[in-house]
Amino acid sequence: MLEGKVKWSNSEKGFGFIEVEGQDDVFVHFSAIQGEGFKTLEEGQAVSFEIVEGNRGPQAANVTKEA
């Protein structure tokens, strides 16, 4: 699992980007967020995730919010 911080997200469009130190930003779709209820990410929020190869390149999977 990698750790990063949410660079920005748009809940209306359903995606955002995660900033990882020393690496390119990672695309995240809201379907990759683990948990119940409305899935949102806040700018600056710490997250853990895996990287998978998506249709348009690397993207985050199994995203969990850190406490």
Score class of each variant (00 low, 15 high):
43 E>W: 13
11 S>M: 14
53 E>Y: 14
58 P>G: 04
49 F>K: 03
55 N>P: 15
53 E>Q: 14
50 E>M: 11
32 A>E: 10
15 F>Y: 14
45 Q>M: 12
41 L>S: 00
48 S>R: 15
5 K>D: 00
45 Q>L: 08
34 Q>M: 13
10 N>E: 04
67 A>G: 13
28 V>A: 04
37 G>K: 07
31 S>P: 05
21 E>M: 11
3 E>Q: 15
63 V>W: 00
12 E>M: 11
37 G>P: 07
67 A>R: 12
6 V>W: 05
35 G>I: 06
61 A>M: 10
63 V>K: 01
45 Q>N: 08
41 L>V: 07
25 D>S: 04
15 F>V: 04
11 S>Y: 12
58 P>E: 03
22 G>I: 02
7 K>Y: 02
22 G>Y: 05
27 F>A: 00
61 A>K: 10
5 K>V: 13
34 Q>A: 12
7 K>N: 02
4 G>A: 00
42 E>C: 15
13 K>L: 11
3 E>H: 15
9 S>W: 15
16 G>K: 00
55 N>M: 14
2 L>I: 12
18 I>H: 01
64 T>W: 13
62 N>H: 09
9 S>T: 15
31 S>V: 04
30 F>D: 05
64 T>H: 14
44 G>V: 01
26 V>R: 01
34 Q>I: 15
30 F>A: 07
52 V>R: 07
46 A>P: 09
26 V>M: 03
48 S>A: 08
36 E>K: 10
10 N>T: 06
66 E>Q: 15
61 A>C: 10
24 D>L: 11
18 I>F: 02
19 E>V: 09
17 F>C: 07
46 A>D: 08
29 H>Q: 05
23 Q>I: 11
17 F>I: 04
34 Q>T: 14
28 V>C: 06
13 K>M: 09
22 G>H: 04
44 G>R: 03
51 I>N: 02
27 F>Y: 09
52 V>T: 08
37 G>Y: 07
49 F>I: 02
35 G>L: 06
48 S>G: 05
14 G>Y: 09
61 A>V: 12
65 K>N: 06
7 K>R: 10
54 G>C: 10
53 E>W: 14
12 E>F: 11
9 S>R: 11
40 T>S: 11
24 D>V: 11
39 K>N: 11
31 S>T: 09
5 K>H: 09
12 E>S: 12
25 D>L: 07
7 K>W: 02
43 E>Q: 14
39 K>E: 10
40 T>M: 10
19 E>F: 10
61 A>G: 08
56 R>M: 09
36 E>S: 11
4 G>K: 00
19 E>A: 14
6 V>T: 00
66 E>K: 15
13 K>Y: 08
48 S>H: 13
23 Q>C: 12
64 T>V: 14
40 T>G: 08
30 F>G: 06
8 W>S: 03
50 E>C: 13
55 N>S: 14
49 F>Q: 03
7 K>M: 02
18 I>C: 02
42 E>M: 12
17 F>H: 01
56 R>S: 08
31 S>M: 04
62 N>P: 01
5 K>Y: 11
2 L>T: 08
41 L>H: 02
42 E>K: 12
25 D>I: 05
66 E>V: 15
29 H>T: 03
38 F>K: 13
58 P>D: 04
1 M>D: 03
31 S>N: 08
25 D>R: 02
64 T>R: 15
45 Q>G: 06
20 V>C: 07
38 F>Q: 13
67 A>I: 13
34 Q>V: 15
28 V>Y: 15
12 E>C: 15
38 F>N: 12
27 F>M: 02
47 V>Q: 01
51 I>K: 06
19 E>S: 13
27 F>E: 04
38 F>S: 13
49 F>M: 04
54 G>I: 05
47 V>P: 01
11 S>N: 12
60 A>K: 00
43 E>K: 15
59 Q>N: 04
22 G>K: 04
27 F>V: 01
14 G>E: 06
8 W>C: 09
30 F>V: 09
16 G>D: 00
3 E>P: 07
5 K>R: 13
33 I>H: 02
59 Q>L: 06
23 Q>H: 14
